[in-house]
Write a protein that binds this DNA or RNA. Structure first.
Lengths: 395, 395
DNA sequence: CTTATTTAATTTGATTTACAAATTTAATCC
DNA sequence: GGATTAAATTTGTAAATCAAATTAAATAAG
């Protein structure tokens, strides 16, 4: 409503600069449809504000005429932090405003669930420490994005439930903001993987895709129209607890037939245990190896997990019809689910149209990707804040 | 990008007028944040163009001062047609630009599947006839919205497959536009029910909701952010073919375990038949009545359908987390699935958060609702066209 | 019946903003 | 060193918004 035209121009140009990394004004004018005159005016404002900077074009332009001057986001403009709380560790990263990583940090935790105040204080300490690594302080951080497992109402920063917190229904976002003294942006960890894929990973350039993650649980992040889709309660997309079997296997959420109850580590181990009458104490890795080696029992357990997973994926496709599905996970942990045979079963289970089924890609990465996704989320929010501030500065 | 500010203003004001039915300028200014001066200018343009008209305010305002003058969409500005192709019939409606129904029509068809050219010609004839009922002609119709079952790529007007067409992969939208000589907007019928609910029904005022329909198949329309969500292939939301059972019952789509294969009419009858060893030839109504009357076999068939349906619904909730689910259907046809017990099972199957589960409402209506939804779709598109045209007129 | 009051709508004048066209800048080519 | 080329900026104009002043149309008061 009260978004005047100039603000729109600033936003589109800044976003375009960010997307391209480095780009000269004339291309900005072409791509956005904004006149060259206005591009000059607006980029001058952004330069004055320090959000962007000029760089001599390094593209091999041997042409005549005045050479292009590239514009890029000014990395030094803001300092961004991102973090992800895992089972018994915290990963943290520090990015500059361009998105390049300045520092990273892994912290072991002695327990899984924490009291929210303690956890906030602990995070404040570690983010501060990380900042000091590059001779900055916690107060210099313009925003901190944090990913946490569980059911999170992101816009409100409210945690309905999380395995990392001892209490339910915590205003964790507010607690964090108060403790750290800087803006904190909290979200479900699966959403932040989607964010990471969109900003740095395989989702770049895609406006609609789904990311499925398998850690200890099964998570999902949905990007629709270039934005992360969060249901109305702020906590949609509980893919792991979609039901794949009526009155099926018991899930740790207390319900029956959840997808997670068939594909998660604990589910596989539980089955192996019961098949052997309580004798089997193998780890997941061993079980998978045994399945590969021809062990019939292990094979059937793993195979069923794969079929269930394929069915869950197919349902996603039937409902969302995405152009891309990214199966994201740490290392090889869930490789049996990401196997080509599983994807093939999925393809058979989706509605058959004379059109290519969605592309399915597997993206394996380390622990820090989660934290980078969280930072990307903060980066988005801080950029928005920075542009918001300009309204007042210029006026 | 070449959307100038004035166009934005026109759009927001026109949309606001449409939403409120009748509203004075001063309230428009307040609601949209556009200044009173600009509201005067823009509404003057819209009046001159004939898209809106002034009506003396009938709101019981006994206050002093200059009385408010309400603005409303000018019904006579455009004539809109909507249609829906059912199994062996076509429903058609004619609306004015305000959305009030001017005429309706039901046509019997002698067959289910049609050759696309013939069907187009047939529709052209009947829409023309309907127009003549109110002393207008086919050429006076500004746009025709048509709903058809099957898999439709709405933006392209392309039908991948439909039970109403003999051929697959038909450019049916283009054929219709050519045959009728007016703009035609084609969509999947379930999407158009969502459209109808949003424009005239229970979805009014909701920006995010899901509509589930049960006719012969199970359909779904999804509204996200005030817009109908269509996957990337234009054909998302195949709720009826989400899988609820691995290697389950055979569906008419050729796959196994589809929701539809458990809840559709033919599925119920098939089961009754096989339970009785081929002796049972009851109709669905009889089967439902028998179940109510205590017949154990019928009861278990109906009950399982309900449980499967609840599971499918719960999966929708777990994935979308909508604020509202509308179960829309013709009359009592699917009442066994819409029963409170089924909804209760669904509530138990969704992820439990300390927050109210989505509201579920049942909306029963007649055949013409589909056609009205199609007309609403056309209305949207024609409004857009009309505003587009203004650019040239004013310039 | 006339005047004051109140509120909606319009008009006016100033300001913002975007853009086309003209100009300047900075390079290469000959 | 001038001609040429292309990017970026400056200039002048047109479009569009808005605050403030004005007009319009009603009721209330005297």
């Amino acid at each position: 409503m009260s978004v005047n035209q100039r603000e729109i121009g600033r936003r589109t140009l800044f976003a375009e600069i960010r997307r391209h990394g480095r780009i000269p004004r004339i291309n900005l004018a072409e791509l956005t449809g904004i006149s060259r005159a206005t591009v000059t005016t607006i980029t001058a404002e952004l330069l004055r504000e320090g959000l962007i900077e000029e760089v001599m074009s390094e593209s091999s332009d041997k042409g005549r005429g005045r050479p292009k001057v590239d514009l890029k986001v000014r990395g030094a403009a803001r300092l961004i932090a991102g973090g992800k709380i895992s089972n018994r560790s915290v990963s943290l990263v520090l990015l500059d405003f361009e998105g390049t990583q300045l520092a990273g940090h892994e912290v072991e935790l002695d327990q899984t669930a924490h009291e929210s105040g303690e956890l906030a204080a602990l995070l404040a300490g570690h983010v501060g420490e990380l900042a000091e690594k590059i001779d900055r302080s916690l107060a210099d951080v313009a925003g901190f994005g944090l990913g946490i497992a569980g059911i999170v109402d992101a816009p409100r920063g409210f945690v309905h439930w999380s395995p990392s917190l001892t209490a339910r229904n915590v205003e964790f976002g507010k607690i964090l903001t108060a403790t750290l003294g800087i803006p904190v942006f909290l979200d479900n960890d699966a959403n932040l993987v989607a964010m990471a894929e969109k900003s740095f990973g395989l989702g770049q350039g895609h406006s609609d895709f789904i990311v499925v993650t398998i850690e200890s649980g099964v998570g999902m992040g949905v990007v629709i129209n270039d934005e992360i889709y969060r249901g109305t309660r702020g906590c949609g997309a509980e893919f792991g607890h979609t039901k794949v079997q009526l009155e099926g296997a018991l899930c740790r959420c207390g319900q029956r037939g959840c997808l997670e109850a068939y594909v998660a580590d604990y589910a596989l181990l539980r089955e192996a245990m019961s098949a052997s009458g309580g004798q089997d104490s193998r780890q997941v890795e061993e079980l998978l190896a045994a399945a590969k080696g021809g062990d019939a029992v292990a094979g059937s357990i793993v195979e069923r997990a794969g079929r269930m997973f394929a069915m869950g994926l197919a349902n996603l496709v039937n409902i969302f019809d995405p152009e891309l599905i990214i199966l994201a996970g740490e290392q090889m942990q869930a490789s049996h689910l990401y196997a080509e045979e599983v994807i093939e079963v999925m393809r058979k289970l989706i509605v058959q149209v004379d059109k290519a089924p969605p592309e399915v890609v597997v993206h394996k990465w380390g622990n820090q990707m989660w934290a980078r996704g969280a930072a990307a989320y903060a980066l988005d929010n801080v950029s928005e804040l920075a542009l918001q501030e300009m309204k007042d500065h210029v006026a």
